[in-house]
Design a protein around this nucleic acid. Structure first.
Lengths: 143, 143
DNA sequence: CTTGGTGCAAAGCTTTTGCATATCA
DNA sequence: TGATATGCAAAAGCTTTGCACCAAG
């Protein structure tokens, strides 16, 4: 994810208009620093742009994905998440409380040898580890 | 996933009633051998049990998940999939045509050192490789 | 018989679409 | 000014829920 200034330039370069809505959605995600649902983005953007529509948030999020500014992530919930961290990383999700943490590539390992890829040209991968976070393990011990 | 006979016993053991709907949903997945959407299960079950309701299919699928007979899988589509293969495996998904293949653990590998798990107790993991299948690569070359 | 299961209809949620209005360039 | 973006409302798609009727044990 770029800076708001770079993003503005990127929009112009790609023929998109620079609108308050696009900047606000971009800023909300940049400020959050981690993946948010469309609804969460909407709530945050409303604080600076009360008239924005949820529909617009969805449209802008798709544009951000197309522009490579944001990555769509599915973590097993009803709603998708939009992640300003576009560098490769995995997620750690607590099955009980849904608490989620990012895992940098240095913390885990995934490998698919080309020979095992059945001729697929891999462009992307989603890795999610599900389990119990420390807090919920403690809570379970009480049961 | 067990045999229909073992499944019948399992139902009784757990206090579930043995119904035609439960057996039919179980058999549809066992026969398919790979993950199906609820709708796909519904279509198949209708062939032997035309009066079954989609609602019932959903309820039974949840029971099968709870019983550990089936695993819920999300592959980035609108609908969830229910996989009769409950042993660990990853998926290979074509981003263009959505063709999907199973990857046995011998074909790939994932690792999360305990020390990197931030205290989480990992019980599960979802690994999906996205890319272009051989056929779609050939189609792309034409563009 | 009695409890649990099924089917139907309706609702819930997230996400998308169509269209008139507003806005950027 | 002219094309694009926004907002609103409505719809679409998947899944869940409430409830009366039915069936397994």
């Amino acid at each position: 994810m770029h800076t708001p200034e770079q993003f503005t330039t990127l929009l112009r370069t790609r023929g998109y208009r620079v609108t308050a809505q696009r900047l606000a959605v971009f800023r909300a995600l940049a400020a959050a620093g981690h993946h948010l649902t469309a609804e969460e983005v909407y709530e945050r953007v409303q604080q600076t742009l009360p008239a924005i529509a949820l529909t617009t948030v969805y449209k802008v999020l798709h544009e951000l994905v197309a522009l490579g500014e944001v990555r769509r992530v599915e973590l097993g919930d009803a709603s998708a998440r939009f992640d300003p961290n576009t560098s490769p990383h995995a997620h750690l999700v607590c099955q009980r409380c849904r608490h989620t943490e990012d895992l940098p590539p240095s913390d885990y390992h995934v490998g698919l040898p080309v020979i095992a890829a059945r001729g697929f040209q891999i462009v992307n991968q989603a890795v999610v580890f599900y389990g119990l976070c420390p807090r919920c393990q403690a809570a379970s011990a009480d049961d």
